[in-house]
Design a binder for these strands. Sequence first.
DNA 1: AAGACGAAAGTGGTTGA
DNA 2: TCAACAACTTTCGTCTT
Length: 307
Amino acid sequence: MSEMVKKCPECGGINLFWNREKGEIICRDCGLVLEDKMIDFTQEWREFDSSEGETRRRTGAPMTFTQYDQGLGTEVGQKSDLFKLEGGERNKFFRLRKWQYRISTAIERNLKLALAELKRVSSFLKLPKSVEEEAARIYTLAVQRGLVRGRSMESVVAGALYAACRRHEVPRTLDELSEASGIEKKEIGRTYRFVTRELGLTILPSNPADYIARFASALKLSAETQSKAIEILEQAQKIELTSGRGPTGIASAALYVSALIHGEKRTQREVADVAGVTEVTIRNRYKELLDELKLERELKKTKKKKR
DNA sequence: AAGACGAAAGTGGTTGA
DNA sequence: TCAACAACTTTCGTCTT
């Protein structure tokens, strides 16, 4: 048995942190996120909030939403029943059956296509299986309620994925979804809001801290910088600097400051690009952070160190 | 010359009358 | 239903390194 010790491909460190919930492996030494090496060990039918009171006990084969008919199907009228009916009644029954058939095949066809698209986008974004399942579930519900009418299938898929990400606290930005799905940001946001409202899904505002690991990794920042950024975020939340603001803006500003403090300077543009916000937003948040928390001292310290 | 800074005008969404 | 509004973006000119 050769014990395979996983090493970080970036720095060779073996101090890896597995965050199963988010499907991420994070290197504690350099902060790299290795998402794709991860198998999701969690059950795919977690309960997402307390209001969803149904206990979903599993019996038999797992029911999966990534398969278009969930392994189940209905048909109106068994043949043997039909012979019990007479004339008009019987015709009515045939008509019903025809309609049922048409509707269900239409839905099924739609679902088949949509779920293929969903899988494509999901794997492009390297989302954990649990999120994919959730998105499929949301989409299925949306189709059954006829919410797709008047909207493109792709945009509803993107919206469902976005919602699922949020619910699992693995937020992706609208920009990322947009890139992966080829749908406009506006459109995704619109359908996302529409679908969640119509289905009565409760979605918590996303936590800026959830973005830190991914952004930091994309910017190749150290683990210390990352944890400093989270520390800053916590302080900012205490004095309610974070409420009402876009979480990505705050996350990126915190990251920017902590990079400065640790002498790993990144330009505002670089940070802005990975976070999908503009430099201006970073500047505004950054200024607020400096004003409200006393970070100037720490900044000066590193400045002196440099010379 | 590149990056940081800030003002001004525009966009899309929320809220409250 | 509409107007006021807050957050964020775009654009652009100026200052700093």
